[in-house]
Structure formats: C-alpha cells, structure tokens
C-alpha cells in the first residue's frame, strides 16, 4: 500500500493515549495530570477522525467538535478547582490530598530528600585556641 491505513492512525492514537495514561499515573502536579488527560483525549479524537475518514462518514468529525466543547468546559472547571485547591495548601502536589484513606492508615509520606533540600554537611567546628582576633567590620560580608 502506498499510504498509511486506518490501523496506522489507530496505532498512533493508541500511543498518544497510553503516554497520557502513564503521565496521569506517574506525575504529581495537578496541572500536568490534567494535561495528560487532555493528551488521552487527543488520542481518542484522532481515533474518531480516522474512522470518519476511512468510513466516509462525517459524524466522527462532528463528534470531535463536541469533544472540543466538553474539553473546554472541563478545562475551565478543572482550573477553577485547581485554583481552589491551591489556595488551601499553596501547592499543586496531588499527594497532599489523601484524606479519603482509611482512618487507621498513615498518610503516605515522601522520605527521600529532594536534591536541593539535602541537609547541609555540618561545618567543621574548630576548637577554641588562643584569643579570638578582633575582626574588622567588613569581614562579615561574604
């Protein structure tokens, strides 16, 4: 065959969908999770348009227009909700909201420190010897 066929488009849509799935499962930023969902929606839209093309039927394209509408509504509401959540915790981390767990389970915490937040190595403390020299004022500047 000399041009990509329906299954090729479907395969591409599947890859987009699955990458969106991975993003939704792995990333913790609320906005990124939402973008991942939109990525999955793009994959589905691609399916619709591909079927529309290869079955010679415009209904698939019409449906994608409705998907665009719903996606816009979804984005507006999601952003409003994200803003509301951000106001309460000053963070976009989805893991901060785990109040729906069972009462007797402990909250899941991150124990591995972030690179920038490593506890700094303690400075060597030198024993006091002799009389401390009088320091000039400007030596306080780093």
């Amino acid at each position: 065959m000399n041009s990509p066929d329906l299954p090729h488009y479907l395969a591409c849509a599947a890859v987009l969908f699955v990458l969106g799935l991975v993003g939704f499962l792995a990333r913790r930023n609320l906005i990124l999770m939402f973008l991942s969902v939109e990525l999955m929606v793009q994959g589905v839209a691609l399916n619709f348009v591909a079927f529309a093309r290869f079955r010679g039927n415009l209904d698939g394209q019409s449906f994608v227009l409705f998907m665009l509408t719903v996606a816009a509504c979804e984005a507006a509401l999601a952003l409003a909700l994200i803003l509301a959540l951000y106001r309460t915790q000053a963070s976009l981390d989805v893991s901060l909201w785990q109040n729906l767990r069972e009462d007797d389970l402990d909250a899941t915490e991150d124990d591995e420190p972030l690179p920038g937040m490593m506890p700094e190595a303690p400075l060597p403390s030198l024993p006091v010897a002799g009389i401390a020299p009088a320091r000039p004022e400007e030596s306080n500047r780093v």
Partner: peptide, 14 residues
C-alpha cells in the same frame, strides 16, 4: 502558582 524547582509536585513521580 509558580513554584521553584525542585519541589514535591514536579520533582517526584508516583
């Protein structure tokens, strides 16, 4: 909602 990297939301994966 600008947050400086690294932070919990962006630098970790679940």
């Amino acid at each position: 909602a600008q947050q400086h990297l690294p932070n919990d939301a962006d630098s970790r994966s679940r």
